[in-house]
């Protein structure tokens, strides 16, 4: 008996059937979903990283005396960086199994994946989507510390020389400031660097670096707008 006949007999005896087309279609669909999903989520993660960078004042670090590295790490959007790395890995891996994806070197797959995330992430960030997405995430996920919360944590720390809030009034060189906990501060602006963009209109949000002199008084050294889209919106 020829080997081919043996094989045919075995197929008949064991009643082996080809797997239905739908199984392979589903497999391809799942791989496609994993690939495109990873690309899109990677781009979204990148856009939120951009938003976090825009919102975070890394220049603050130079004013710190101790534990700069720890502070810097605290500023980084670790969750979104991890999400981006994970999505790049999933995208690169799943691309191998899509059609003739294996023909592309893994280094090239990583590069293309990264470029896609940068391009679409930047577009999404420019369109304002990143801010909305981050806010939606912060509302729905209670355990998540939003970028704004992180920012507040840094700038609502007068003992360490960081203060923020909204302008109540200004007289001579004394600023009447209501911080984000509704506490009123008298801020001495004499000799301080004041960002030219500031107009000191009532309600304008500002942040400053300086020294707390007592429970309600603060000597400012640098005064800057709170930053972010809210600031631009206020100016209109």
């Amino acid at each position: 008996m020829e080997n081919s006949e043996k094989m045919i007999n075995r197929i008949r005896q064991e009643n082996i059937h080809p797997l239905p087309k739908s199984v392979f279609q589903l497999k391809r669909l799942l791989i496609g979903i994993a690939f495109t999903g990873a690309l899109l989520l990677g781009a979204l993660a990148f856009s939120i990283i951009l938003f976090a960078i825009q919102q975070t004042d890394f220049s603050v670090i130079q004013h710190l005396q101790h534990s700069r590295l720890e502070f810097f790490l605290g500023l980084l959007p670790i969750l979104w960086l991890s999400a981006l790395i994970l999505m790049l890995a999933v995208g690169t891996y799943s691309a191998y199994y899509t059609g003739k994806g294996y023909k592309i070197k893994w280094t090239k797959r990583v590069l293309l994946n990264t470029l896609f995330s940068i391009l679409f992430g930047t577009l999404f960030f420019i369109s304002g989507g990143a801010r909305k997405l981050e806010q939606a995430f912060a509302i729905r996920m209670h355990a998540y510390e939003s970028i704004q919360e992180k920012k507040l944590k840094i700038w609502m720390n007068p003992e360490a020389g960081f203060l923020s809030g909204s302008v109540e009034s200004i007289q001579d060189s004394t600023l009447n400031l209501r911080d984000f906990n509704n506490k009123i501060w008298l801020v001495n602006l004499r000799g301080a660097f004041i960002a030219p963009v500031l107009s000191f209109e009532t309600g304008e949000k500002v942040k400053m670096i300086g020294q707390m002199t007592d429970n309600t008084h603060f000597n400012a050294q640098e005064l800057r707008p709170w930053g972010g889209p809210e600031q631009r919106h206020q100016k209109k």
């Binding site: 059937h17 080809p18 239905p20 392979f24 003739k100």
Partner: peptide
């Protein structure tokens, strides 16, 4: 070698619908 080939052809048979004409 024949055993391996036989097993491989059973797999080919099972996955016949997977074959992509590209």
């Amino acid at each position: 070698a024949e055993d391996i080939l036989q097993e491989a052809f059973i797999k080919i048979w099972r996955n016949l619908n997977e074959f992509d004409q590209q």
